[in-house]
Amino acid sequence: MSLKYITPAERFKRYLPKDYVELVDYGPFGKTQDEAGPGNMGQFKELVEEHPMCSGCWMAYYIRLIFASLPCPEETVTLGTAGCGRLAISQAAVPFIYGNYGDQNAMASGLSRAFRIRFPDKTKDVITIAGDGGTMDIGFSMTMHSWIRGEKFTTIMLDNEVYGNTGGQESGMSPKGAILKMAPLGKQGEKMPATALAQAAGCVYTVRMSPTNIKKAAKIIRRAIFVAREVGPTFIHAYTSCNIEYSIPTEDVFADAKEKEKTRFQFEEYMTDAAKEVIERVEAEEKAASKARKAASKAEAV
């Protein structure tokens, strides 16, 4: 896709669905984060539409945040797999590819390479967004090998520490001792060390976090995307609770995410020197551009 492809001719607008026209007119396409980003969600038309994820689902919330944080939604493709998250990801106005269970990182490898050949003059962002089962269990070999090959795209794991979509089986990411519907005796093994595995496999930027601070969560998503454009594979391991399988009252979901931030999901950010260089450069450029825009609009107002 591209901005040109998304934008309809003015005269054609009245024949298009209202939601689509609203997205073009009031959505984040072609806009900066100051105009339509996580900080002013609720004031522009967001990319994610209505979806069937559960009431109060923190995974649905984080997906909302991912889409609001995208540096360039009109040049982005997401890939995912079976699991709760795809129910919302597939309802966003960004192309989404859904294959066999767990093959998202294999598909993304081919896609990101093809984009670089087909559109050498453009920046296309490829992001896989999948559950803990899809990323670390059933899709494990494809996840690991994409990292080992150094494929340049972003992997986001929505870790709810369970197979939520299929009713509560333990996953490699469930914590030791977790009692789940289909692990009634409690999980015997340890939680897999996802970010350590990612680093060992060659990810150049990894973060483990519980998304409770919007600014920080958005910054991390963008860093992971910027670094993947230039340097190599990047990985975000995010806590996105399942209030159904872990019996968390919905009004306590945010408090639970804050509590997990102090325990299993303590913030951890790793980057190579090359990744750091990109982050510092891009963030300095963004800051300068934002300052220039503010100065320009002030001058206009005078």
């Binding site: 996580p38 969600m41 004031q43 967001e46 990319l47 109060g56 649905a60 919330y61 909302r64 979901v253």
Partner: peptide, 8 residues
Amino acid sequence: TLYCPEAN
């Protein structure tokens, strides 16, 4: 508005 799980 920044913390509702549902967009829009």
